[in-house]
Write a protein that binds this DNA or RNA. Sequence first.
DNA 1: CACCATCTACGAATATTTTCGTATTTCCCT
DNA 2: AGGGAAATACGAAAATATTCGTAGATGGTG
Lengths: 124, 124
Amino acid sequence: MLKPTEAELEILHVLWQQGSCTVRFVHETLHAQKDVGYTTTLKLMQIMAEKGLVRRNVESRTHVYEAAINETEAQGELLRGFLHTAFRGSAMKLVMQALGNHKTSREELDEIRKFIENMEGDNQ
Amino acid sequence: MLKPTEAELEILHVLWQQGSCTVRFVHETLHAQKDVGYTTTLKLMQIMAEKGLVRRNVESRTHVYEAAINETEAQGELLRGFLHTAFRGSAMKLVMQALGNHKTSREELDEIRKFIENMEGDNQ
DNA sequence: CACCATCTACGAATATTTTCGTATTTCCCT
DNA sequence: AGGGAAATACGAAAATATTCGTAGATGGTG
């Protein structure tokens, strides 16, 4: 699976959240946060279709796109790369930083702790 | 602080690990893993000096470089960006993926669990 | 002292990613 | 049917990142 670029990821997030959408919809969504032209979004989505990152339905004049890669899997791939380039592979260091620097709610911490306890249980 | 590129990060990792070194040393280290020319490494390090990512001592003919940014801080910055672009800010999701997909030893899991328990303790 | 290995400086080629202008087609509304 | 809004296709500019060739300086060694 080809690694999506940063701009492509923004588009994928819209598709993951919305399911299928038109270029127009994706563009409106991005445009709400960022100043970008319509044809820029269109071009990116066309490139993504070539790369196999998205699928498109061209039956109607207005094409309908959907993500061709799974969100969790893609994030896993990205994480693997990032872990390597930024943390030289130390998952523990990354996790500690993530927990330490970003506000995580009590509930989320609980959930993570249970997750770990569960892993430790399996492991014995 | 300017965000280092991927190639720059590789150099920073050498500097973080080694302390001060020459271009030659950094190059040899990178070259062991990757086919890259000496002047490429040199040029990158010169650019990094301009950007303020590294400091260099030019007293002797052979310049000596050291990282100008702290490893943990830099990783924190990178993580913030990555968390946003890849996980839309969900630290929990990232942590779960990191723990789930990458082999983490029993000892490391313990350490993380204690870290969380400690955070939860403070929080009450 | 002259040569050679090694260093830095610098500009430019290449590759990658992002942006957008323009042309053309299609559909809808009057 | 005619005109305009909205869509896609396409190429190329712009921005960013990476690579390296070449020139010139410097220092050690025979």
